[in-house]
Amino acid sequence: MTAENSPLAKLSAEGVAVWLDDLSRDRLTTGNLQELVDTREVVGVTTNPSIFQAAISKSSLYDDDLRRHARQGSDAEAAVRDFTSNDVRAAADLLAPVVERTGGLDGRVSIEVDPRLAHETDATTAQARDLWSLVDRPNIFIKIPATRAGLPAITSTIAAGISVNVTLIFSIERYHEVMDAYQTGLEQRLEAGESLDGTASVASFFVSRVDAEVDKRLDSIGTDEALALRGKAAVANARLAYAAYEEVIAADRWRRLEAAGAKRQRPLWASTSTKNPSYPDTMYVDQLVAPDTVNTMPESTLEAVADHGVVTGDTIRPNLDDARQTFAALESAGVDLADVSRTLEDEGVEKFESSWNELLESVAGKLEAAK
């Protein structure tokens, strides 16, 4: 493990689970993922369509499987599902000791439903069940987007005893709906006489994309008041999300569920690499430290934190008033935060759809060439 006084060790000691936002067969076969677990406090892995698109398109380690699928006459979707589920299963097995060490809290690997289903409740629910069975490991999360159609799918999936990573959350309002969907699923499970043991969830609140969109609007407004707010929206948004989380876990509804064995749906900070090179490269880690949270980072951010991260304790709860003031100032400056969230959700779904389609096209070409 890392030295006890290293930034990553301090982060873990503050109750922040360090997860890697990347997975590839190269990481698995070279021992890189195991090394990050051993030396960088990594206790979980997240994936998305963009990550798999990069991993499969750029590696030769899938060639034998491609030839096998070509001989079998598989289409691109079947091949991609095979590749991704195998990689996630291998990562889940690698992280099994973390599951045991953390009492089931960490050691999780996420795999996402087809992003083209983001606005289809029943299809999302069905594929969540299929992926859960296909990977067949208890320490995975099925990623479901926090779209309007995704909310009832989250409830149904949790009610079925399938653990969920809710992705693409951008607003406090939608986050409240996500937490309600999780609790409703747990309540339905209890009403059906089922155990809550093993069923878990995280809620992935996206960070850097908020600053990218808000900063663009602040630049357009152009006043001194607006320009002074650049780079402040994302951290304020995430901090207020944490406040919402604490409100929920303090309520009677959650206390009843927790007494019945429910696991807390931890907030997960996603999209934590800075998009603006003028911002400190660890700001979405250093400024979002609090117990019961997850921070999933690309390796570049992970290494930046290991090298020069500044972890001095809780940086969320002491700064909630500042976060509220930032939101009030943004609205006063003319930023429509509700529209920002809608725009980012639409763009997020579109980006993941595009990556998934590119991956399918790439694999289809490779399958044809391998015949």
Rank of each mutant, 00 (worst) to 15 (best):
I221H: 04
G222A: 02
G222W: 03
D224P: 01
E225S: 06
L227Y: 00
A228Q: 04
L229E: 00
L229I: 11
R230F: 00
G231H: 09
K232M: 05
A234L: 04
N237Q: 05
N237S: 03
L240P: 00
A241I: 11
A244F: 01
Y245L: 01
Y245A: 06
E246C: 03
E247P: 01
I249C: 03
A250D: 14
A250I: 01
A251Q: 04
D252M: 03
D252C: 05
R253T: 11
R256L: 09
L257W: 10
A262I: 09
A262L: 09
K263Q: 14
R264A: 08
R266D: 01
R266H: 12
L268F: 00
W269R: 09
A270C: 01
S271E: 09
T272H: 00
T272D: 04
S273L: 11
Y279A: 11
D281H: 02
M283K: 15
D286I: 03
V289H: 05
V289L: 12
V289C: 13
A290G: 01
A290W: 01
D292K: 11
T293W: 09
V294N: 07
E299L: 14
L302R: 12
A304G: 08
H308I: 08
G309T: 07
V311S: 05
G313V: 10
D314L: 04
D314C: 03
R317D: 03
P318M: 09
N319E: 13
L320K: 08
D321R: 14
D322E: 15
D322C: 04
R324N: 05
Q325L: 10
T326H: 05
A328D: 13
A328G: 12
A329M: 08
L330C: 05
S332N: 09
V335W: 00
L337K: 03
A338S: 14
D339R: 12
V340K: 07
S341I: 08
S341K: 05
R342G: 10
R342Q: 14
T343P: 04
L344V: 12
E347I: 13
E347K: 15
F352R: 06
F352K: 12
S354W: 07
W356F: 14
